[in-house]
Structures are given as C-alpha cells and as structure tokens.
C-alpha cells in the first residue's frame, strides 16, 4: 500500500485483476499517481468516517472522484453510496459506479441514491481502458469541485 500525498481517485474494488487493469488503464493516461484503493465497503467507509487513525483524512485530503464497484465484501457498494450521499461532509463528492452489472434495478438504485455516473465495465480491454481513462480524465482533470 502506498501513501500518496494527495488522493485524487478513490477506487473501491475487491477484484485484484480489475484493480490492476484499472490502474493500467489510468497509468496509460498518466493519471494513476494519486490513487487509493479500498478493497471492500467497510474500508471505503473507514476512509471517511472510521474511528482509527487515517493520516490522509487528518490532513484534510478528499478525493476528486470515487470509483465504486457494487458487489463488494462486507458492506456492498450501494450501502457505501447511501452513506456517502446522506452525510453532509461527503455529499458533494462525485461517485462513479463502475461495475460489471448491467441489471436495471442496480442502475435505478444507484441513481436514486445519488450516483453521479454509472459505467458498465466492458470485457474488451480496449473499451475498458478507454472507459476508465475517460472517467479519470473527466472527473480528475475537467470537473471542478467546491472548495
């Protein structure tokens, strides 16, 4: 685990393959330096609301975008989304659901809970890489957040 000075992307992903492929896609566009990975929902919630010691939170670092898988161990993605979007401190953070599920109920639930975007991971790597890097480029470089 690395300790970046500045977290620009928080990736919540339990699948190491997907994690690596995501990183690879972001690296190709040189936007993977400031990325933190949470490997389940609990860890993701800990990042924002946890009891323990988290220097990146203490020094006031907030990610520019959260890439959130839905099917996660412990606390699932939709619950993480609900908690983030119902808390004043985190409501403004952009959350992009990045998942294998194309199921209509998942899509509807995600948007109802306040997801900012919903991306189905393509199997084809070129498409996948394009999707991930486009998301990274858009939210990290183009999107303006409140200060």
């Amino acid at each position: 685990m690395n300790f970046p000075n500045e977290v620009e992307i928080l990736l919540v992903e339990d699948n190491p393959q997907d994690e690596e492929l995501t990183l690879r896609a972001l690296k190709e566009r040189n936007i993977a330096n400031q990325l933190f990975v949470a490997r389940d929902g609990a860890e993701a919630l800990d990042f924002f609301f946890g009891e323990g010691s988290h220097p990146w939170r203490e020094i006031g670092i907030v990610p520019r975008v959260i890439l959130l898988d839905l099917k996660l161990p412990k606390v699932d993605g939709l619950e993480v989304l609900r908690r983030l979007k119902t808390d004043e401190r985190t409501r403004a953070l952009p959350v992009v659901v990045l998942t294998s599920s194309r199921e209509e109920p998942d899509i509807a639930a995600a948007y109802r809970l306040g997801a900012n975007s919903y991306i189905v991971k393509p199997v084809d790597f070129e498409s996948f890489a394009r999707a991930v890097s486009d998301v990274g480029l858009y939210w990290v470089l183009l999107n303006e957040l409140p200060r």
């Binding site: 393959q17 393509p122 996948f128």
Partner: peptide, 14 residues
C-alpha cells in the same frame, strides 16, 4: 452478470 464477466475481463485485459 457480475462474476462471470470479471474473469473474462481479466483474460482479455491481461
């Protein structure tokens, strides 16, 4: 939907 595609993505990606 979710679990069968992830490995495929791995196969293709790697």
């Amino acid at each position: 939907s979710h679990d069968l595609r992830a490995p495929l993505r791995g196969i293709d990606g790697f």
